[in-house]
Simulated assay, not measured.
Amino acid sequence: MSRRKDLQDWVKLAKSPTQIERIEAFFGGHGYELHRHDTYAIGRTLSGVQSFNYRGGMRHSLPGGTMVLHPDETHDGEAGTEAGFQYRMIYIEPALIQKILGGKPLPFIPDGLSDDPRLFAATQPLLRSIDDSLEILEEDDALYDLAQTLAVVGGQRYQRRVFDYPAAERAREYIHASFNKNITLDELSLISGRDRWSLSRDFRALFGTSPYRYVTMRRLEYCRRQMLSGNNLADISIDAGFSDQSHMTRQFISNFGVSPGRWLTFIRGR
């Protein structure tokens, strides 16, 4: 697909503080390399065609539908036509969904796209203009409705296998407090009171990613916050727990689909 030269890419972050990340963006052609988040990426195409590789096939998101990308699923993003595409997206930590569902396996939408009107309605409060602020209680209500709707629309068949949600949550909280250290599975096992392999299994089922990937994303979140403050990339990388700046950059591209420099350009360019 060719690209019109008059189309300028941009990404805008919601400025009001909330429990979730909200963005609105426009891309005239290629947007993101293959990458994966440890969050749900739930969004809506506002105009154009948003095309992306997901679970072995090319998907095409059109206005009127809902995108629901599961944590840790690889995807990319590009315009499906020369007109480009504009969209809004929210990124929700599986831990927030778990606090509502209470330790059940995470809801899953197989194709990453849904035309279900219940899901469209449930996402509407969180996918409105990012210039609109959200009250804390309003956001909590919307997250509750969305989690319940995801579970229904996803048709989740809960197995009888028992997960130790409190133990996994203790490990998750420890990671947040110590992400810049060299955390081991044995250490998490001791903190959680759960044997290492049962903890690893439960963590994946309950939070959608492995303990190591969860640590990596907390480090990258720290780096993004420090980058916005104008701090030096090399120092940020070491402080976050990466071996050096190159290590951080490789992980940044792998998990966000763009380089740190390009990401900063998007954020500061609008």
Rank of each mutant, 00 (worst) to 15 (best):
L13N: 14
P125V: 03
L127H: 06
Y32V: 08
R128M: 10
A205Y: 12
I236V: 07
P211D: 00
Y144E: 15
T74C: 07
L106A: 08
G241H: 07
S178E: 12
G261R: 13
I267C: 01
H30S: 10
T216M: 12
P105C: 06
K181S: 10
D6V: 14
R128G: 15
R170A: 09
Y91P: 02
D141N: 13
T265K: 09
Q156W: 09
P166D: 00
R59D: 06
E169N: 03
L233M: 12
R88T: 06
Y91F: 14
R224P: 04
D132N: 12
D132P: 00
E33H: 12
G28A: 07
F27V: 10
V215P: 01
V68G: 07
N232Y: 05
V215A: 03
D186T: 10
A147W: 07
Q251V: 07
H75S: 07
S129E: 07
D195S: 02
R128H: 11
V162M: 09
L137N: 14
E139D: 08
D115V: 14
S129C: 09
Q86W: 05
S200H: 02
I90K: 04
N182P: 08
P105R: 01
S61Q: 14
L143R: 05
R218L: 08
R194M: 05
G56M: 03
P260Y: 10
P71V: 02
Y174D: 05
T123I: 04
S192P: 05
D235F: 08
L113K: 03
L150R: 09
R36Y: 15
L220P: 00
S133K: 14
V215C: 06
Y144L: 15
P94V: 01
P71Q: 02
G57P: 00
M58H: 13
S16H: 14
R268D: 11
F207N: 03
Y158H: 12
F26L: 01
P166M: 03
E73W: 08
L62V: 15
S47Y: 06
R224I: 11
T18A: 05
L143D: 05
V153L: 10
T123Y: 04
G57R: 14
D6T: 06
D115N: 14
Y40D: 06
G241N: 02
S246F: 12
R250W: 11
L199P: 00
F26M: 01
D132L: 12
S16E: 09
Y214H: 12
R55G: 06
T216A: 09
Y91W: 04
R262K: 15
Q19F: 09
D76M: 04
Y40I: 11
R194N: 01
F207S: 05
G48I: 01
I20Q: 10
Q245N: 12
I253D: 02
G257Y: 03
P117R: 08
D186Y: 09
S200I: 00
A151P: 11
V152I: 15
V258S: 08
L137M: 13
S114R: 00
E24S: 10
R204M: 07
R59V: 13
I92P: 05
L188N: 00
A168N: 02
